[in-house]
Design a protein around this nucleic acid. Structure first.
Lengths: 240, 240
DNA sequence: GCCGCCGCTTGACGAATGTCAAGTCTGGTG
DNA sequence: CACCAGACTTGACATTCGTCAAGCGGCGGC
């Protein structure tokens, strides 16, 4: 692995606080690899050999039923580790992972990671913080699904994308609409109608480009809630 | 705290592997307390002062919107810690907690816990394992919500309750039907209809007592899936 | 340029679910 | 025992959402 890669890795939140020696041990067997679009990194039910860390690009996590239906559970952006829980406890993945945009992914051998965990207290704390973030994201999603209609979920999503949140904000959807629909828990057809319905709230869409006419009206429509919509990153176990 | 209580605590999975001295430090400021039905232990948005561990009884975690609607996210049974993620990262609770059955709850001061984490590597590993279990439960719930109809969710829930899973199995619902409906992501009215619909599959209900005529037919109806329905407890970070 | 594929939209329809209101049952209390 | 309150059920209806089919439109390949 190149030294430039090592620097990339050292900056990752899940390895936060490790000094160079400690980091070296963890990353000794790690691979930093590029994957093209559509690559399936692993499938649900498999035993985790690696902890994956998305360094660049975009990856989706999805679940499937035995009869072939699928649902997108999360769309990841750098930098984020995924399915830490499976890798740490050596239990089967509950979700599959597929590359959406050409991506650079760090793969840390799970066994080596678990071994280091017992030896390097700081590493365990970083992992705890990362896992806490991942847990809280799932709780937020459950609340989103159970407390909102699909159009409200779309509205909240658009509000989140409109950064900075100013009237007239314009941005690109991060994925195609089929994936987005699945992520939001609806069908592509229903997503089309939800976009149409938000026309009332001065939302305009052309292709993948969204324009938010009035942040205030969008807010008013979906009742954004700190405990559902806020994005948390880089929490710490020990505040000091 | 009585020595009997200490023994109770030592057996908890989230304190697994700690020797007596270490445990003593953690539990020095802890309280083991009884709460009556309906007690609200904390509300979403509050800062966590304690890590709660349900030792006996039953507790529900629920989320609410600003306009007062609520949804039950989890129903806990002993022994289980809850909202570990909030307590460890000192971030606001994403859910509220209410006592369903008279309960005995261990309250460990969050600050003391976080301090000990940095000092006791084994403690961090136990916490990682507990948090991993909690994360995976949330992922399972998201999959359940997005991949099944409400009647299938009920069927899967009944299958889970029928333990041992034999034809003619009879058991009591763990909560009243309003709470159960909310936990399953539907209205009480819809739950009534879902029970009625499962009559077709030889499910019978009288009051809170459920009888499963044929496990096979119930299985066939909801397509149980290891990666949604299995119950995981007491995972370990380091397998040895 | 033409064709065909794919992503997306639209419309019609039906199924699932929520809402509202009324009615039934039941368990506890005075 | 009668009564009441709360839990539950049922019915009628509205709404949301999914399904199916058709059609539009852009983009890449030939």
């Amino acid at each position: 692995m190149r030294t430039r890669d090592l620097e990339t890795i050292r900056a990752l939140p899940c390895f936060d606080g490790l000094d160079q020696d400690q980091l070296g041990v963890v990353t000794a067997g790690a691979l930093l690899q590029r994957f093209p679009r559509e690559t399936v990194l692993f499938e649900q039910g498999e035993r985790p050999d690696f902890l994956h860390v998305l360094v660049e690009g975009s990856v989706m996590l999805y679940g499937s039923t035995t009869d072939g239906r699928e649902t997108v559970i999360e769309i990841l952006t750098p930098v984020d580790s995924f399915l830490l829980a499976a890798a740490l406890t050596d239990t089967p993945y509950l979700m599959s992972a597929k590359v959406l945009e050409p991506s650079q992914i760090l793969m840390v051998p799970a066994r080596a990671l678990r071994e280091q965990l017992a030896l390097q207290p700081k590493l365990a704390l970083s992992m705890l913080a990362s896992l806490a973030v991942q847990f809280r994201r799932m709780v937020r999603q459950v609340k989103d699904l159970k407390l909102r209609t699909s159009t409200q979920r779309l509205a909240a999503f658009l509000l989140h994308m409109a950064d900075p949140p100013v009237d007239g904000a314009t941005f690109e959807l991060p994925t195609n609409k089929q994936v987005l629909a699945s992520r939001l828990g609806m069908t592509p057809e229903n997503l089309s109608r939800a976009f149409a319905a938000l026309g009332e709230q001065d939302i305009h869409i052309k292709g993948r480009t969204v324009t938010v006419g009035s942040i205030e009206r969008l807010r008013n429509y979906c009742h954004p809630d700190t405990l559902i919509d806020d994005v948390e990153r880089d929490l710490r176990v020990v505040l000091d």
